[in-house]
Design a protein around this nucleic acid. Sequence first.
DNA 1: ATAAATTAAATTGCACACAATTTAATTGTG
DNA 2: CACAATTAAATTGTGTGCAATTTAATTTAT
Lengths: 151, 151
Amino acid sequence: MGSNKKTLTTDSALLLDNQLCFALYSTSLAMTKLYKPLLEELGLTYPQYLVMLVLWEQDDVAVSELGSRLYLDSGTLTPLLKRMEAAGLLARSRSAEDERRVNIALTEAGRKLKARAARIPGCVVRAAQCPLPELVSLTQQVQALRQRLTA
Amino acid sequence: MGSNKKTLTTDSALLLDNQLCFALYSTSLAMTKLYKPLLEELGLTYPQYLVMLVLWEQDDVAVSELGSRLYLDSGTLTPLLKRMEAAGLLARSRSAEDERRVNIALTEAGRKLKARAARIPGCVVRAAQCPLPELVSLTQQVQALRQRLTA
DNA sequence: ATAAATTAAATTGCACACAATTTAATTGTG
DNA sequence: CACAATTAAATTGTGTGCAATTTAATTTAT
C-alpha cells in the first residue's frame, strides 16, 4: 500500500495538466498570440511592447534598468533595442557619467505611439472574457509566485 | 473630470505591473530558469521535458497530437524532436496507415528517464514556497484563462 | 473516378531567451 | 597610485516559437 501510494503520487505529479509551469508557459504563449495582431498595427513585437511600457512610464533608462524591470539580460535586450532604434522608436547613447552604460530614450515617434497603444489593454481584457477583479487577483497571485521564484 | 478620469484609467492600464500578460510571461521564464539545472542532469531542455511528460502519459503519438497537447506547431516540434531523436530518447517513424503522419515513440532510454524525473516536481513545489492547494488553485485559474484565450 | 480541398510535416526566415565569453569602464583595496 | 575585482554591454552560439510556404498524402465533392 505504501509503495503503491508513492507511485500514484509520483505519477500524478508528472501529469502535464497538473503542472503549474506548463499552465503558465502555454497561457503566456497564448497571450502573446492574442497581442500579435494588435501589436502588428504598431509595428511592435510583444517583448518590444514590454520595453515601450517601461519607457512610457520612465523615459531615458539604462539597458540594465530595463533588464531588471523586465527580467531580461543584455543578450536579449541589445539586439532587440537595436531593432527598435532602427525602427525609429528610441535612441541608444552611451552615458556621459558612466561610459559603460547605454541609455535608452524614446524618440518623438516612440512617445506618440502610446496614444495608439491605449486601446490594447481593453482588447485584451475583452478577449480574456473574465471579470476585471479576477484578472487583478490572478495578476497578483502570479506576481507573488514570481517573487518567490526569483528570491 | 470625465476626460481626466479616462486618462488616468488609460495610463494605469498601460502600467507594466498591472499587466497580467507580463506577470505570466516573466513568471513562466522564471519557472524555466528554475527547471534548467534540474533538467540539465537529464539532458533535457524545458520544452523537451514537456514532450517527455506527454510521452510518459501516452507513448507513440503523432506530431500533431503532441502539438495539440502542448499548443505548439510542427515548425517548433520538428527540429526539437529531431534533437531528441539524436539524443536517443525517442524514435520518429512515418505512420503506415497514413503516410502524412509521423509517430513519436519513446526508446527504452526515454522510458527509463521517467524514474530520474520523478523528483523534479517536488523540487519545483519546494522552490515555489507555496502551499500545495494554492498551487493547484493557481494552476486551475491559469488553465481556465488559457481555455478562454484559445477559444 | 478524379479534380479540388484539406490535412500533416517539414522547411524557411525572423525574433526572441539565455549561458558563456569578451571588452571596456569603474570601483575598491592595499 | 596601481591593480585586482566588479560592473555594464555586447557578442557568440544554441534552442526555441511561429508565420508563411512547400511537399506529399488523404479526403471530399462532384
